[in-house]
């Protein structure tokens, strides 16, 4: 039968699920290029085997790394259901090992209102402010900072070290801007604020440009690596 001939036999079967111990628990690395059904059944087998061997109860966190595979909602639920049936493992996440999550985009935080002197808006991801940031107000984002209003305070984008982060504002008149570890102060005596500008890192130098070229900047980054 031609069909059975193309089916992989046990002997030549490639391992689709690799289990690795990591600092926070167990990491299940899933092959990116195999069909989900195959991956699913192998994961099921692996987990059953694990359930029999291990006696610890729910103490170990499991992380599943699907690589670049994007799960549909049903697939996601199916995988979660696999883990929820186990008493020995608790699912830590489907985004890979916890360290790797730092490089993935997170939900942006949208703040509506004025960020006033002495107030700090801090978020692991992008920050969007619908309102003004007054002098003495502070924004700290591991991703980008977007201000739909006056940026008169301080903003720190890429606080985790991401040098691709940008700081954009409708009215760009900040006291201080910082991207990753590069700091720039306002030139002092403020003239009228620049409209629709954004700050980005050009190598080690901070640059400020019109918002209209943001697309080009993104495209240039895209040539080397994925963009948020």
């Amino acid at each position: 039968m031609p069909d059975s001939a193309s089916m992989p036999t046990d002997g030549e079967r490639r391992q689709l699920v690799a289990v690795k111990g990591i600092r926070n628990g167990l990491l299940f690395s899933i092959a990116e290029d195999a069909a989900f059904a195959e991956v699913y059944s192998e994961l099921q087998e692996t987990l059953q085997g694990h359930g029999r061997k291990s006696e610890a109860k729910g103490a170990v966190s499991a992380y599943v790394d699907f690589g670049d595979r994007i799960l549909s909602e049903e697939e996601d639920l199916a995988v979660r259901a696999l883990f929820s049936g186990l008493r020995t493992l608790s699912l830590g996440g489907l985004d890979g090992a916890p360290e790797r999550r730092g490089f993935r985009p997170r939900e942006p935080y949208v703040y509506k209102g004025t960020v006033r002197s002495g107030q700090i808006v801090e978020h692991d991801g992008d920050i969007v402010i619908i309102g003004d940031v007054n002098p003495g107000g502070q924004l700290i984002a591991s991703g980008d900072v977007y201000v739909m209003g006056y940026l008169r305070g301080s903003a720190h984008a890429g606080a985790g070290g991401d040098d691709r982060a940008i700081i954009a504002a409708t009215y760009f008149d900040p006291l201080q801007v910082r991207i990753a570890s590069v700091l720039r102060r306002s030139p002092g005596a403020s003239t009228s604020p620049a409209e629709m500008e954004f700050a980005y890192l050009d190598g080690e130098q901070m640059a400020v440009d019109r918002m209209s070229v943001l697309g080009q900047y993104r495209a240039r980054l895209h040539a080397t690596r994925a963009v948020l």
């Binding site: 006033r116 002197s117 002495g118 002098p135 003495g136």
Partner: peptide, 10 residues
């Protein structure tokens, strides 16, 4: 004005 801004926030 700076102090007023701080107080308004509080």
């Amino acid at each position: 004005v700076r102090d007023a801004d701080r107080v308004i926030g509080l």
